[in-house]
């Protein structure tokens, strides 16, 4: 049998696709609340990612409280030149407010946010008693 190398990122991409299909069905995904989010488990922390291209970080308001993350902001409409004629217009604009629940209790005051290339990444440590623990066997 041939050994097929599987790139970890390739595997993650397939896993994400499978989960999106399971949640929304492979066809006819309808528009949802903006922005779309993915929640990951990093062991000690939850990582919440949201795609917000074209929204500068200073226009995003982030609130973390109990087990809830709230993202608010606005994607501005850039007025084109007066003599411009549109061929396609697919990019939306407007205000957004998104509430995301994380699966277990978190240490909200230790949350960190990073914005890179239009993706917002929140790293929120789990509450101390919700973190995985390795139990040593004592002899």
């Amino acid at each position: 049998m041939a050994f097929v190398y599987r790139d970890p990122f390739d595997q993650l991409q397939q896993e994400l696709e499978r989960m999106v299909d399971a949640a929304f069905g492979p066809v006819g995904r309808s528009p949802g609340v903006y922005p779309p989010v993915n929640v990951f488990d990093q062991g000690e922390a939850y990582v919440v990612k949201a795609e917000v291209p074209g929204v500068p970080p200073e226009k995003i308001d982030i609130n973390v409280e109990d087990d809830t993350v709230t993202l608010r902001g606005e994607r501005a409409f850039s007025e084109p030149a007066k003599d411009a004629a549109y061929h396609r217009r697919e990019r939306g604009h407007g205000q957004f407010r998104r509430v995301v629940r994380v699966p277990s209790r978190i240490a909200a005051d230790e949350a960190k946010a990073q914005y890179r290339d239009g993706v917002l990444t929140l790293t929120i440590p789990k509450a101390r008693d919700a973190r995985p623990r390795r139990i040593q066997i004592t002899s």
Binding site: P8, F9, L12, Q13, E15, L16, E17, M19, V20, A23, F24, G32, P36, V37, N38, V39, F40, D41, Q42, G43, Y46, V47, E51, P103
Partner: peptide
């Protein structure tokens, strides 16, 4: 995405 395990997913990457 290294070391991240998806738990809730709304979009593919």
């Amino acid at each position: 995405y290294e070391g991240l395990k998806p738990v809730y997913v709304e979009y593919g990457v």
